[in-house]
C-alpha cells in the first residue's frame, strides 16, 4: 500500500482535494520506567537534555502518528492534512501524545 501523505499544510501545491473524510486521530499513552526516572532525577540537578525522556516521547509520538494513519487508511483516505500534535501529561509518570488531522483524498494535478 502506498504510504500516506502527512502534512501540516492545508493545500499541497500541485494537488487538489477531491474528498474530505473528516477528522482522524491517533493517541498513545506511555510511561517511563524506574531506571529512566532515577537518571532523570539526577540529571535534573545538573540540567541539560533528558535523553531518556526525549526518546520516550519520540516513541509515543511515532505510535500516535501511526495510529492516525491507520484510521485514515481504514476510511479510504490517501493523505492527512493540517496535522497537529499535542502532548499532555496524564499523571506525574505518563505522557499522552495526540495527533489529529483532516483525512482527505488527494488527486495529483495533471500538468
Amino acid at each position: 500500500m502506498a504510504k500516506l501523505l502527512l502534512s501540516t499544510l492545508e493545500a499541497i501545491p500541485g494537488a487538489t482535494i477531491t474528498k474530505h473524510l473528516g477528522l482522524v486521530q491517533g493517541s498513545s499513552v506511555r510511561a517511563k520506567h524506574m531506571g529512566r526516572d532515577l537518571m532523570a532525577g539526577l540529571k535534573n540537578m545538573v540540567g541539560g537534555e533528558l535523553k531518556g525522556y526525549t526518546e520516550l516521547l519520540q516513541e509515543t509520538r511515532d505510535e500516535a502518528i501511526a495510529r492516525m494513519e491507520a484510521e485514515a487508511e481504514a476510511i479510504g483516505a490517501n493523505a492527512v492534512l493540517n496535522v497537529r500534535l499535542s502532548t499532555a501529561s496524564i499523571t506525574s509518570g505518563a505522557a499522552e501524545v495526540f495527533a489529529y488531522g483532516a483525512a482527505v483524498v488527494l488527486a495529483q494535478a495533471r500538468s
Partner: peptide
C-alpha cells in the same frame, strides 16, 4: 491508577489510560 503505577516501574504503554482519553475525546467531540 494502580495499573499505571506498575507500568511506571516497568515502562511501556499504559492501556488503562488509553480508553480513558479516548472516551474523553469522543465525548468532547
Amino acid at each position: 491508577m494502580t495499573v499505571a503505577a506498575f507500568v511506571n516501574i516497568l515502562g511501556g504503554r499504559i492501556n488503562a489510560y488509553e480508553t480513558l482519553v479516548e472516551r474523553a475525546r469522543r465525548e468532547a467531540i
